[in-house]
């Protein structure tokens, strides 16, 4: 059986026939070739596959592509304002050494964006608790927290 889905990904509308068992992360990576979203644990623990579905952080390894029918999706490829600008979170991770191998970074940034959307001025603890569903095996998290704080600060400057 295959089902037609219509989704908007990073502002672009797509329509595809998919098998019901196709996971959303595999749709993004294998069908749309958006490989910035990573598959880490594949068991909804590590958060490397985090994207936004209708503005909410979502582990795309634990959602079927058919469930995303009609939804607005944002992936790491769609978060920067333009091709030659970085999102403040991307800039923060670069400036504060928030990554080493970089595998977890797309998921970290997408979850952090959800945190900042709901709480533009998070405490260090709120950042750490908010990122509890994202694992990093390199950095020890300290610089990731600093990166999110950098972005929160930067985003405030921009809006003022």
């Amino acid at each position: 059986m295959s089902i037609r889905i219509n989704v908007t990904v990073n502002g672009v509308a797509f329509s595809h026939e998919v098998e019901p068992r196709l996971l959303l992360v595999n749709y993004l990576r294998d069908v749309l070739r958006l490989t910035g979203t990573h598959v880490g644990c594949d068991t909804s623990s590590c958060g490397a596959c985090t994207i936004h579905v209708n503005g909410k952080a979502t582990k795309s390894c634990t959602m079927l592509a058919v469930q995303a029918d009609g939804c607005e999706i944002t992936t790491i490829e769609g978060i920067a304002p333009s091709d030659d600008e970085l999102h403040p979170l991307q800039e923060g991770f670069r400036e504060c050494h928030g990554l080493q191998c970089g595998f977890c970074t797309p998921g970290m940034i997408m979850t952090a964006a959800d945190i900042l959307q709901n709480n533009p001025n998070p405490s260090e603890e709120e950042i750490r608790v908010g990122l509890e569903g994202n694992f990093c095996r390199c950095t020890g998290y300290h610089n990731i927290v600093k990166s999110v704080q950098y972005a929160a600060h930067k985003m405030k400057e921009v809006t003022v």
């Binding site: 909804s44 958060g47 979502t58 582990k59 634990t62 959602m63 945190i115 509890e132 569903g133």
Partner: peptide, 8 residues
């Protein structure tokens, strides 16, 4: 769970 799990 975590933020992502609670969202769904």
């Amino acid at each position: 769970g975590d933020v992502q799990v609670r969202n769904h």
